[in-house]
Design a binder for these strands. Structure first.
Lengths: 335, 335
DNA sequence: TATTAGCACTGAAATAATATGAGTGCTAAT
DNA sequence: ATTAGCACTCATATTATTTCAGTGCTAATA
């Protein structure tokens, strides 16, 4: 891979990203000061290496997944933001009333908007969250709300209709007990400790202990399974991309984007990697026809994942530039 | 409109709903024991009245919006559920641990699943909800969560990072004041009363009263604008319908379904009508190419709206049957 | 040895020509 | 009031034809 071959591949990838049309040899003559035949020879070589592909024998070249990967790893330079985009993001971070995690969510909305890709923010893993407090609020003699709050400030709640004869006072007593004994426990372990430490105590002291126990158990288990930690924006934005000008492809992807359990996979791969990660096509577990660009942060002691979902022909320079910018802003704030 | 004309229209609408293909005269001869020419004469008459349409001069007939409307109002009989569907819904209502409002949400998910239409549940209008309690939970010396709970059991929360020198004790004091003075106030009026009744008091007694005042103000205003009262399922289901085998149409609708403010319009029209309402095409404010079937309930003193969004060629009998069934189950529970 | 002009060849995509058939409206007979 | 009969219409499918941007390869050239 001499310099000209590198430049050629770079040019082809970037042209294809812009135009979504196979790149022919003639169109590159001017840029490389040589004839189309020379370009064709070089192209044939790049195809042999697996970096380029053809749709049919006489079509122009398009980058292969391997080609994109090589481009991303060796040829691409992250873009520095243009003034307009920077301004938009700056105003969000400048607002000091905004919690950092909300600022990130808003940024991703903007990014989705200006790039026409889908964006995702994943956060508050139950394992990072410790129980801060459970409160019981009575609505009327039959109904109560149980509110669980974690040390990271995440709140979930659930309403219960009480069975005949449940004692509100006892309910409050148990909630005090739970607060005394279990505050500081990782949320996903609360269920277990409830069983082992709380149940034996209330079994002796409380009349309808089963009913009451179940209320607490339910309130916590809902927290662990809740979906409130996924925030997606521009779910339909990606369909503006020309590769989805095909109904079946569109439906397939739309369905996947509905399925939150699918989305959550994004944070699992390369779990501890805090760098900008780019998963192209087959490389990502979500869908072989998209690229996912991901970045993880730790904010206020809690891991947060942001990701952009777009076609394989994504504007890598721009997205990486945008994510780098967000990273800088977060660093600044973190001080 | 003699009886045969009614039957003919009914037959055409129902056939078209099933087959999505224009209905020709020949195919109806057997059912009506007459020749295709007779059917054609009748069809021409129904077209004159505006109940039927043609795609082109020599195509079969399809129902017009007016035709659907006439069908829905005069010809249709709501279906009684088949065993399988009924079983699915029954198991949901049979689970007495489930709050009624959650049961409804689950039902709508099932309905979306079995019918391939999109379903929506709209609830907890801020005007119906009265303040039950506001709690302040401290996460660390700099951060707190404000949790607002209403008498209907709806909870919203917001995390705040405190400005240097904000006194936690004073914050708690103000929260007690708010609880003492404003409990029972409709949520959407709390902001105003905060300004008129609380501000003057704390102005005198609290040092950094502006900061503290803003925390409360923000916590409540978020509640009013929150989207947590919309629950949609099967957002992509409607695309299984053959009328959306068209990319632009699909995109258009997908975008509308993303926009929550659009969806919320469904509850506003004919605001107090508790009957099953059917809005066909131009009749609904959401989109001229869909039908919306809506039903409102009052559950635990709070209004809840459910709606099904499908093509104009919706299976009206089935959907109305399903909604009627849900209605019955709710009545039963309400006792 | 690297480059390039030249040329035959490919295959997608657009355009045109043609056939098919399900449906209609209308007229005149029953 | 119904219907057989017939000319007519238009969407849809099929096939043939053309166009053109692109290729690979060979042989000449710098």
């Amino acid at each position: 891979m001499d310099e000209r071959k590198n430049n050629l591949l770079k040019e082809i990838v970037e042209t294809y990203i812009k135009t979504v049309k196979p790149v022919g040899s003639k169109s590159l003559c001017d840029k490389f000061n040589c004839s189309s035949a020379t370009i064709r020879n070089e192209m044939a070589y790049l195809e042999e290496l697996g970096y380029l592909e053809k749709n049919h024998i006489s079509s122009g070249r398009i980058p292969s997944e391997k080609g994109y990967k090589y481009y991303v790893e060796n040829l691409m330079k992250a873009e520095t933001l243009n003034g307009k985009d920077m301004l938009k993001l700056q105003t969000i971070f400048a607002n000091s009333n905004l919690q950092l995690s909300d600022a990130i969510t808003q940024c991703m909305e903007i990014i989705s908007d200006i790039t026409n890709y889908t964006s995702v923010v994943l956060g508050n893993n139950s394992k990072d969250n410790l129980l801060r407090q459970i409160s019981i609020i009575t609505l009327n003699p039959n109904q109560i709300v149980a509110i669980v709050c974690t040390d990271k400030g995440h709140v979930e709640n659930k309403t219960f209709t009480l069975k005949e004869g449940t004692d509100l006072l006892e309910l409050t007593k148990v909630s005090e007990l739970v607060n005394k004994k279990l505050v500081g426990t990782p949320i996903d372990e609360v269920g277990e400790r409830l069983e082992l430490e709380i149940k034996p105590i209330i079994q002796k002291q409380v009349k309808h202990y089963e009913t009451i126990y179940n209320i607490f158990y339910d309130a916590f288990s809902d927290f662990v399974t809740s979906n409130s930690n996924v925030h997606m924006s521009g779910r339909t934005k990606i369909f503006e991309q020309p590769e989805y000008n095909n109904i079946d492809e569109m439906k397939r992807l739309a369905n996947k984007l509905e399925d939150m359990s699918f989305i959550k996979k994004i944070e699992k791969i390369d779990n501890n990697d805090k760098e900008v990660k780019i998963y192209i096509g087959e490389e990502n577990e979500f869908d072989a026809n998209v690229t996912i660009i991901r970045k993880k942060f730790v904010i206020d002691g809690e891991e947060k994942t942001i990701a952009i979902i777009g076609p394989k022909r994504m504007d890598y320079q721009r997205i990486v530039g945008l994510l780098n910018y967000i990273d800088e802003e977060i660093e600044k704030r973190g001080e």
